[in-house]
Design a protein around this nucleic acid. Structure first.
Lengths: 109, 109
DNA sequence: ACCATGTGCAACTCTGTAGTTGCACACAGC
DNA sequence: GCTGTGTGCAACTACAGAGTTGCACATGGT
């Protein structure tokens, strides 16, 4: 189970500002913390912290380009998280179907 | 866009205790707050609050049975959230692919 | 060498919320 | 009727994290 990683993704996505950052990054392809901060009602430092959380969750990656650090999204990681949730949903459905079947059997006896 | 609903789901799932509650519910099919609290290191009241959050996100439903209230998971809502995230991932991928193509064209000039 | 811009680190404030306790009410069984 | 157990509501505590400010360091351009 990639349980710990999925947890990190969910925590990262639970924050509105972080989702906004991801939107901006998806839009621009690549951007620095300073540039992103200009488009948001928060300081650069706040943006840096959010990007760190997103990085821990694997949702963004960063590279140095001269004196600035550029971030970009990592769609595969989000896709993986989506798959994990989908699997979880399927597991629940199966469980509920089994319970329903058992209930009907008991009723039949 | 079911953006607001997806938000609620993400916030709900970001909490470890809430995910545990969902696990327990998926396991048992149906359970009351008091019963669930016995399996967790928190009080019934804490469980009730968490269940309220999960209910707001549409991840669980409840029904009265005599003097107790029984909760169960709603797999369709989780599945829907998974689909939304998947679509988002696809959108990012498309965007990145476009940017990459543009970069290569410019390089070609 | 100097200046402008971008980043990194640390300490601080403050709001949200997870969790608690205490008590009142509701229902099932005796 | 009384008593168990389960639920509902309200006030409170406490901690995590979102955001800030201030300053030091690094890099590119002139």
């Amino acid at each position: 189970m990639t349980r710990t990683l999925l947890d990190a993704v969910l925590v990262a996505l639970a924050e509105p500002t972080r989702r906004q950052l991801l939107d901006l990054l998806a839009e621009r392809g690549e951007a620095s913390a300073s540039t992103l901060a200009q488009a948001l009602p928060v300081t650069r430092q706040a943006v840096v912290k959010h990007l760190a959380v997103l990085d821990d969750a694997g949702l963004v990656s960063s590279r140095r380009a001269g004196r600035e650090v550029r971030y970009r999204t990592r769609p595969e990681r989000l896709a993986a998280a989506a798959r994990d949730l989908s699997e979880l949903a399927t597991a629940w459905e199966t469980r509920l179907a089994t319970i329903k079947r058992l209930a009907e059997e008991e009723e039949g006896v």
